[in-house]
Structure formats: structure tokens, C-alpha cells
Amino acid sequence: MARIVIAGAGLAGRLCAWALVRSGHAVTVCDPSPDAQPHFDGTGAAAFAAAGMLSPLAEQEQGGARVAAWGWRSLTLWAGLVQALRPAEVPFRRDGSLLLAHRSDLGAAQRILALIPGAQALDSNALHSLEPALVPGLHGWLLPGEGLIGPVAAMHALAQALTPAPTQSGISVDWRWGCPVLSVSPGQARLASGEWLRADWVIDTRGLGTAPDLPVRGVRGEIVTLSLPGHGLRRPVRLLHPRHRVYLVPRTDEELAVGASEIESGDRSPVSLRSAVELMAAAHSIVPALAEARILRLDRHLRPALPDNLPMTHHEPGLLRLNGLYRHGWLLAPALVEQLLAAAGLAQLHALVNVRPPSLSLSAP
């Protein structure tokens, strides 16, 4: 058994903790947030302010083959993880996703599609059969095998799995909420209080909290959560627009998320009127029924990105780092956590969720 300190209780930190305690290690998790819950105010874990699209084919456009390979691996791991958590409470589907374009934007869409091998063109009848809620006249392409996960539900399930009720025995971690980590080094973490936590291993998943030690920047994401009972959308869709990459993700039969993939800005202020109007107008242009949707929440966050927009994993005795998940956090985190913990000999995530071992082609950047 190893003593392990994890700096950061976002998605990567919670996945690491989940795998490590099930492998018999003693785990302490430190995070500046006051608790494990989302607050939707631009602070806390960026994973809460995400749509939860699992789109390895679509992300080839910017991430290339490595991001796609990690994404497919993560889809396999997510299937096992959700079953091991709360399958009735965590939305997870793999019915594919759709790329859409209005007729006037077809030229711009074709340039993007050239970078996405595997997209299957659909005629109007096939598109209507898959998604009858869409407005007629759209051009559509199916990305088979892609999926979605419910971010808030999954984050909650990970925390709950590591926090048994007082009357129950079970695997748990030592949560240190309201406890920022200022710096890490092999075998130790320095807290804002001045305390040093010493352990056999320190795992740094702090995202933007690692600056200036790492050249990490914030990429703003904005999301609108809508309620429309019986909206009818079954799959995540992306609208290929010359100025926006707007996505629309059905989380439940009543709730949907609308967002834009990335905004190069470190601004944490609330969503602007312009952004909100553009996002919702784009969504309404493809799903007319959204005219009657109700706005549940406008949210924003900064996602950690490195200069090349690819994730970084680092392994040395006593210290592991995972950062730069950019807009790919839910798509890449399980595969990268699996890879990092296996390299250190601390846990075999695939065995814990009963899936096949990873292929040798999943190499770190």
C-alpha cells in the first residue's frame, strides 16, 4: 500500500482517486473548492461546465490521430466505469453523433469534413429517421460509435463512491476541501496553509492551478442548459458554422446543453448577452422546438490548455502530473489516467472496470 496525495479534485483527480483506493492505496485529495459539488460560478472543477460529448472522430480535426486513439480507449473505459458507479443515474450512450450544416454553410463544412475521416454522409431521409426533431433541409453526417456522458452526474457519482455514508463501511479517501496546493515535488505537496503533506507519491491534476510552473492557459467555454420535456433529440449534434462550432447535447429526455467548443480568453465573468443569443439562436435554427425551451442555467469556465493544445503526462519517482486536457477532458481523462497509473505501477484501471487491456499504440505526447 502506498500513501498518495492528489492535488486537484476535478475529473482527473477523482478518476485517479477512484482507481487508487480500489487498488489498496491510502489517498488524500486536496482542492481549493469548499466541497465536492458544482457551484456554476466559473470556479471549481472545469469538468462540471462541460457538455460531456465523447467524440474521437470529430476531435481529429484539431487533435489528430493520437487524440482519436485516446478517445476510443476512453469510450471503452467509460462504459465499464459507469457500470461500476451508478448506471441508473449517470447518462451514458454510444449511439453516434451528428455533424450538421445549413445549405449556405456547406462550403465551410466540407473543409472541416476533409479533416474528419469516418464521417458518413446522410441523405435527408436518413437524417430525419435518425433525428426527426431537426429542421428539414440540413446537410448531415453521422459519426458512428461516438457518445455522451452526463458530467455533473458522473462527477457526483465518483465523489459518492469515495465517500461512504457514516453508517456504512467502504473505500474512502481523505478529502481536504478548501485546501489549495501551492506547489508539488516528488513525495511532497506544499499547501497554502504552509503545511507540507508528505507521501510516497504526489499526483498533480490542478489544471490552471499549476501556473506558472507549467505554461498552461485558460480557454473559456460557455454553456447554456435548457429544459424542454420531450425535445426529441437523441444524439449530440455539432453545427458546422463559419464562425462558431456550436454543439447541442441531450442529457435527458428533458434537459439539453448548448455550447461553443472554445473561446481564447481567460475571462471568468458571466456569459455575455451576445454569446447567449448566438448560442441559442444557432441551436434554435436546427431544432425549432427549442423556441419553447426554458433556460435553466448560463455557465462558463476556463479549461486548461498547453501551447500545443495536447495533454501532458509526466512520470518520475514520487511524482505524476496530468494537465492540458483542453476541451477534451471527458473524452481523454480515463485513457490518460489509465496510462499514467499503470506506468507508475500503482493501478490497472482496465482491470478495475473489467475491460480489455490497452493496446500498445496509446503513447504519451
Rank of each mutant, 00 (worst) to 15 (best):
V90Q: 03
S124L: 11
G107F: 05
E89Q: 15
G140Q: 08
W141H: 04
E131C: 04
H102N: 09
L134M: 00
A121D: 10
L134T: 00
L138M: 04
L134K: 00
E89G: 02
A84F: 07
L134R: 03
P136N: 03
A84Q: 13
G137M: 06
A121I: 11
H102Y: 12
G140D: 12
G137N: 09
L115Y: 01
A109L: 06
P136T: 06
A84Y: 07
L142H: 13
L100M: 07
R86K: 06
H128G: 07
L142S: 00
A126I: 02
R94G: 06
R94A: 09
A101E: 00
L100P: 11
V90C: 13
G140P: 06
A84T: 05
D95R: 12
H102L: 06
L99K: 08
S124R: 14
A88F: 07
L142W: 09
A114N: 12
E131F: 03
L106Q: 14
A114M: 08
G137E: 10
G140V: 03
L130R: 08
L122A: 05
Q110G: 01
P132L: 10
L77Y: 07
H102K: 10
P91S: 06
V135Y: 00
Q110I: 00
P91Q: 04
E131K: 03
P91A: 10
A133D: 01
Q120P: 05
V135Q: 13
L122T: 03
L122S: 08
H139W: 09
I116Y: 06
D105M: 09
Q110L: 14
L77C: 10
L127K: 05
G140A: 06
D123L: 12
A101F: 02
H128A: 15
R94I: 02
S104Q: 14
G96C: 06
F92R: 07
G118Q: 01
E89R: 14
L99N: 02
R94E: 11
A88N: 10
L85V: 01
D105S: 14
A101G: 09
N125L: 14
R111P: 02
L113P: 00
P136F: 10
L113S: 04
L100W: 08
W141Y: 07
S124C: 11
V90Y: 13
P87W: 01
L122Q: 10
H102R: 12
L127H: 01
A121W: 08
V90G: 08
S124N: 12
L85A: 02
L85Q: 00
I112E: 01
L130C: 04
